[in-house]
């Protein structure tokens, strides 16, 4: 897949070092599952992690550490050998939109079962709950063609991943698989482009609060 908008290399570094909160790392995972360029970058960063592990001065293990370990590998149950393997036969259920597999766990393999909540005319939202995550949030948005993604505030960083359709703003055009990863200073209001609705996932630090909720509603009414 040819993708044109990629995460900031700094975000990929934090992804590799484990320094991203779960919502942001989910979006990066979804992107790298489609993007060989960013896979390459993450690999490079993982090599950095490997080099630093090689260089680190080890700390002596407790006396029983080795024997405890040898006991566990000898008692190891071979059933567990398959853990962590990707289930490659996930059905796509004859639908148009292909969900990247890192998102299955959070939104399922189809958008049809999403319980959308009405937000404004042409705009639906679904909040993805992430267990154990207090500071960062993930929201799925479904926006009709020609609509603007509602203006919102949040306390820090924001990252958007396009699941289907496309949008554009002054920073560029974004389509399936692309990531918008901007510094918080950038003021932008993306508009859905093309004839298809745009479904995107937005990760934010702090909950998404829609700034001009009523303004958006009225704008939408009057524009029609």
């Amino acid at each position: 897949m040819k993708l044109s908008q990629h995460p900031d290399p700094a975000s990929l570094l934090s992804y590799s070092s484990g320094g991203l909160s779960t919502p942001f790392s989910i979006l990066i995972s979804a992107h790298i599952s489609l993007c060989s360029k960013c896979t390459e970058k993450v690999r490079l960063y993982n090599e950095v992690g490997g080099v630093l592990v090689e260089d680190i001065a080890g700390i002596t293990l407790s006396q029983e550490a080795l024997s405890k370990f040898m006991d566990s590998i000898e008692n190891e149950n071979s059933d567990e050998l398959t853990i962590g393997r990707v289930n490659t036969d996930v059905k796509q259920e004859n639908e148009m939109i292909e969900i990247p597999f890192p998102l299955y766990k959070y939104i399922g393999s189809s958008l049809e079962k999403i319980k959308w909540k009405y937000l404004a005319p042409g705009i639906k939202k679904f909040t993805i709950l992430i267990e154990g995550e207090k500071d960062a949030y993930l929201s799925l948005l479904h926006i009709a063609p020609g609509k603007k993604i509602p203006q919102h505030t949040h306390t820090g960083e924001e990252m958007t991943f396009v699941v289907s359709g496309s949008f554009e703003d002054k920073t560029g055009a974004y389509s399936i698989g692309d990531i918008a990863d901007h510094d918080q200073e950038i003021e932008h209001q993306p508009t859905v482009s093309g004839k298809q609705p745009c479904v995107c996932i937005v990760a934010t630090e702090g909950p998404m609060v829609f700034k001009s909720f009523f303004a958006n509603v009225f704008q939408s009414f009057y524009r029609i």
């Binding site: 779960t22 790298i32 489609l34 060989s36 360029k37 962590g84 995550e133």
Partner: peptide, 24 residues
């Protein structure tokens, strides 16, 4: 954290049909 969002690159490769991945 209860979730495991980190995708093992070796696993990503299983799904990827991108010819570019040979460069990796």
């Amino acid at each position: 954290k209860s979730s495991q969002p980190y995708v093992d690159i070796n696993e990503v490769e299983i799904m990827s049909n991108d010819p570019d991945s040979e460069k990796l």
